[in-house]
């Protein structure tokens, strides 16, 4: 790949070189013909040695001068061309830089510098229009998710309250109560999906702005304590050896760590071992597994890896979204029959 400026310059230089090369035999021929003509006209007879010497001297001097001026011309030419082109293409490079720095999720429109060249002005306005419509489509999509999730909460609450009331009916049979409980479970899953979608929309629309210094080991310990009452039968080997302080929103950090840990616990059978280690700024959580998971889909939305899991299918996409905001690095790998999630804060 070559740059736009050097592309035109190279051609010019090559052309000048060819002209220079071609001009040498022409000069040689013209000057020697002229020389012989002048000698004949004035009936000057030189010894062959002297004639050759003079011919060489004159041709040499003229060639030298020609090359000198040619070089001067070419150098100036290159310098001028570079200067003019550079200034000419400056708006283009500005535009390029702006587009490169553009981030759709930041919701900020791009301001292009005004240019007095029609083509560039047109380019900028076309790109502006394109970006604006993208930003507004993106925003609408986010707002839609957020609004739809909000609107669903009330009907969900109605269904929930009706089920709770139904449960109070004294003529209820065991089988009917079982159906209510199963409906309850499905309903709580719908509510969770809804809440998680709302959470994702909120993270993406740059809410949760509060920043705090948080000691990773402390927050991990809190979450582990909370989870240990739910997962008494699972073994967690922990090696927390870091006093790393991370800067972020405490709620988001807690959600992210909880999701990662819940994920490991949910996919671990009783009495199997979960390894957790925190050293410096790197957190590694690993749990035993059968197959490697599809890395491309893992962090996507609703990409549940196995059919029997009751999760919302959004846990890891929330992890991804949170880590993206703070530029933390989340990686998945599969080694020696273990799923390994690594977060570099």
């Amino acid at each position: 790949m070559s740059k736009l400026l050097s592309k035109s310059l190279k051609r010019f230089a090559a052309y000048a070189g060819i002209v220079l090369a071609c001009s040498i035999p022409v000069y040689y021929f013209a000057i020697s013909t002229l020389w012989h003509y002048e000698l004949d006209e004035h009936n000057i007879i030189l010894t062959p040695e002297a004639g050759r010497e003079d011919t060489f001297f004159i041709i040499g001097a003229i060639t030298l001068l020609t090359v000198l001026f040619f070089a001067l011309l070419l150098g100036g030419f290159v310098w001028l061309n570079r200067r003019i082109s550079h200034r000419l293409w400056q708006p283009f490079y500005h535009t390029l830089e702006k587009i490169r720095a553009f981030d759709l999720s930041s919701h900020t429109a791009v301001d292009f510098e005004r240019s007095n060249i029609a083509e560039f002005e047109e380019l900028n306005s076309s790109i502006s229009r394109l970006l604006d419509s993208n930003i507004s489509a993106y925003r609408q999509q986010k707002e839609f998710t957020e609004n739809a999730s909000h609107e669903l909460q009330t009907p969900l609450a109605i269904v929930q309250s009706k089920l709770d009331l139904l449960m109070q009916d004294s003529s209820l049979t065991s089988a009917q109560a079982q159906i209510i409980e199963e409906t309850n479970n499905a309903l709580s899953r719908v509510s969770r999906i809804n809440k998680n979608l709302l959470l994702l929309a909120k993270i993406e629309s740059q809410q949760f702005l509060e920043l705090k210094d948080i000691a990773l080991s402390e927050i991990l310990q809190q979450i582990l304590d909370l989870l240990s009452t739910l997962f008494a039968e699972k073994v967690i080997h922990r090696k927390i050896d870091s006093s790393y302080i991370v800067k972020g929103n405490p709620i988001l950090l807690e959600i992210m760590l909880t999701n990662l840990l819940m994920n490991a616990m949910r996919h671990t059978f009783p009495r199997q071992e979960i390894e957790l280690s925190l050293s410096d700024n790197v957190l590694v959580i690993s749990n035993p597994g059968m197959h490697e998971l599809d890395r491309n889909q893992l962090f996507g939305r609703f990409s549940t890896a196995s059919a029997h899991t009751p999760g919302s299918g959004l846990g890891l996409s929330i992890v991804k979204e949170i880590s993206k905001r703070y530029l933390w690095n989340v990686n998945y790998s599969f080694q020696n029959g273990n799923h390994i999630f690594e977060v570099a804060f």
């Binding site: 479970n185 709580s188 899953r189 509510s191 969770r192 949910r266 899991t309 009751p310 999760g311 919302s312």
Partner: peptide, 14 residues
């Protein structure tokens, strides 16, 4: 008892 974690649990036996 488990707040937000409830539905991430495979069962409610706890």
């Amino acid at each position: 008892l488990s707040g937000d974690l409830a539905d991430m649990l495979d069962n409610h036996d706890f």
